[in-house]
Design a protein around this nucleic acid. Sequence first.
DNA 1: CGAATAGTGTCTGTGAGACAATATTTA
DNA 2: TAAATATTGTCTCACAGACACTATTCG
Lengths: 212, 212
Amino acid sequence: MTGYRDSSGRRLDDYPRPSVAVDTAVLTVVDGALAVLLVRAGRSDDEWRLPGSFLHEGETLRGAVLRSLRVKAGVEGLRPRQLHVFDRPGRDDRGWVLSVAHVDVVRADRVPISKGHQLARVDDLPDLKYDHGEIVAFAVDALRTDYRGTPDPAALLEAPFTMRQLRLMHEAVSGERLLPDTFRRAMAPRLRATGEMLVEGRGRPAELFERA
Amino acid sequence: MTGYRDSSGRRLDDYPRPSVAVDTAVLTVVDGALAVLLVRAGRSDDEWRLPGSFLHEGETLRGAVLRSLRVKAGVEGLRPRQLHVFDRPGRDDRGWVLSVAHVDVVRADRVPISKGHQLARVDDLPDLKYDHGEIVAFAVDALRTDYRGTPDPAALLEAPFTMRQLRLMHEAVSGERLLPDTFRRAMAPRLRATGEMLVEGRGRPAELFERA
DNA sequence: CGAATAGTGTCTGTGAGACAATATTTA
DNA sequence: TAAATATTGTCTCACAGACACTATTCG
């Protein structure tokens, strides 16, 4: 590597290099509302941030995300997706740090909450360190876009599920009420009926579906 | 900066850091077709790449994109937009290099073509170095998405313009024929008629529009 | 039975696609 | 006048939203 020179004749390692971090908004649905996993920032009691890590040598961004979730939050991440690189000078008081923001979506029962962690509803977020508030906004936006038109693309529901369960999940993600009949007709073509029924409390039993 | 330690107790500068580059697909429309600016890679005659540069200290990604376009291609870039970070290990034979891919869209008359540069139609692209072929695909996709539903968002046309000029521009970007009447009805609500008319060759004079 | 939930019928408005008709100009 | 282009009329189809109706179960 040291032999290479760029167009201005300088060796690659002559350039100062930034630290590169990954920060991930781990989204989930708890009690019918969209929530994001926060970890305590430093020692202070009221400073929160997203789980993240610096990128290690030879590691992919995806690898760094999965490692940081495992180590910092005890979460087995699934399919992290890149959102945006945050590069504002001075955004990190530790020096020259770029952050590659990611989003990952996991079922709430796979997010262990211990001391120093919390699941915060995205519509009632505390102040976050760095630009992590912006990252959450990017992540929520990306997730809502995915859920518009596709049945539970992040597989927050385990198949099989009823149309009602699916609709409640989409309502939680979108933050809006959805009409049962319109929703059913929009989703049905992308689902396969299992033939099984589910009796749940009062009311007529519901057909069970899986993703087509 | 040197005083800060991370959660494992190591100083920030103890970590090896990657080189961070920006690479930009400069898209334009020439002769009714979408094209991208390529620069010669190294000394060989048939190796092409996108203009790019390493990120300098204290510089934003956007700043690095605009600088690299000015210096490497003589183009005054406009509004670079981030696409994706390419991080495959071994993607760059010079070492550990991440590339933040960008797209920028400029009018063809502002892209000076000299020795070592070419505008290549995106539907007939030569092999590109690194993963720059993938970057072009990302860029074209992003541009086509922007043009679906919005009249010439990148301002490739100078206002005022006729509906025909606008349609031909959208056909060049999308790579598809568009129905004149459907297109007009889709765009008209987002345009303002200037009241002026343009006589151009044969046929009934056309009304001139500007973006609303 | 009444309440609750599941599922279907159907009306209406909107908008895209497509074709046709009209309008205005040059060759 | 014929050809070319601009613009508008209108028909059809698909689909979302909305409301109403039927179906099935539990208390």
